[in-house]
Simulated scan of single mutants.
Amino acid sequence: MEKSELNEILNALKLHSEHIDKKMDVMKTDLEKRIGSLEGRMGSLEGRMGSLEGRMDSLDTKMDVRFDRLEKKVDGIRVDLTETQETVNFLSSKYAQHEKKLQTLINQQSQ
């Protein structure tokens, strides 16, 4: 009797072990699918990030070009303003000289 009971217990343990193995296989397959899906999504995100990096590099280059143009334009305006100031200074000194001559002439005529 004991031998048949032991055989039944061993058989029950074997069936239970097979059942657990099947569940583990199902869980393994499910986990592998999820990992594959996540890897696919990661690859997609990496591609999008690469695309964004490319766009940012392009924008950076465009901005550098525009800032260079703006810098040249401001330098040109600065030169124009300097030349204008020099002209104003020259004309102011000439005006003062002519005013002085006129005062001298007026004073000579008054005497």
Rank of each mutant, 00 (worst) to 15 (best):
S92W: 06
S44R: 05
V88L: 02
D80N: 15
E99R: 02
L81E: 08
L45C: 00
D75M: 10
Q103W: 06
I77S: 12
R48S: 11
R69A: 10
G43N: 12
E32A: 15
R55P: 00
S51L: 13
L102R: 00
D30R: 04
D25R: 13
R55G: 04
E53W: 15
T84Q: 15
V88W: 04
I77L: 15
E99N: 12
M56L: 13
Q103T: 00
D57I: 08
K22W: 05
D25P: 01
L91M: 05
T61I: 03
I35C: 09
L52W: 09
V26R: 12
E83H: 02
T84C: 07
K72T: 07
S92M: 01
T82R: 13
D75P: 02
G43M: 07
E99V: 00
R55C: 03
F67G: 03
M42A: 15
G50A: 14
R34I: 07
V88C: 05
L105Q: 04
I20R: 06
R48H: 07
T61N: 14
A96F: 03
H19F: 12
V65D: 05
I35A: 13
F90M: 08
R66V: 14
L52E: 13
K72L: 12
H19S: 15
D75R: 07
Q97E: 02
R34D: 03
